[in-house]
């Protein structure tokens, strides 16, 4: 299973970024193979629709779960269309976020938990 964590930099030791649409990197960890791949978020500087572009990228990277801090309405509609499980409340590093997920400590959401443009503040 591919799990995506929003992060400030590449790799497992990077600090997490609680913003989804405007995070710097998506770190994708394959829980079966253990492989770790980091992808730059090209939506970071979008003037609008960053959440849409970010959700599109995560969907096309084949992620099945997204661990982040907040997701706005447009991004959420894509994630739910594709069937990606969304968990919030990550802290610390990417590795910390994955541990929290495995221990069932991250809250699942079934609706957006941020307003449009919240990541720009």
């Amino acid at each position: 299973m591919k799990i995506c964590v929003t992060a400030k930099d590449k790799g497992m030791d990077s600090g997490i970024d609680p913003r989804f649409g405007r995070c710097a990197y998506f770190v994708i960890v394959d829980s079966e193979s253990g492989s770790v791949n980091s992808f730059e978020n090209t939506a970071l500087d979008a003037s609008g629709g960053a959440g849409i572009r970010a959700a599109e990228a995560v969907a096309n990277l084949g992620a099945e779960a997204l661990l982040t801090g907040s997701v706005g309405p447009n991004a959420f509609s894509i994630l739910s269309e594709v069937g990606i499980e969304v968990r919030i409340g990550i802290k610390g590093t990417v590795a910390d976020a994955l541990n929290a997920y495995r221990e069932g400590k991250l809250e699942a959401i079934d609706s957006p938990n941020a307003s449009a443009h919240a990541g720009m503040k």
């Binding site: 939506a43 979008a46 003037s47 609008g48 629709g49 960053a50 849409i52 572009r53 959700a55 599109e56 969907a59 096309n60 447009n74 509609s77 894509i78 269309e81 594709v82």
Partner: peptide, 19 residues
């Protein structure tokens, strides 16, 4: 689309008319 009004997903193209 520079306004990101379209998303190309594995399941189809999603349109965001407001953008």
């Amino acid at each position: 689309c520079r306004y990101n009004a379209l998303a190309a997903l594995p399941t189809g193209i999603m349109v965001f008319p407001f953008l």
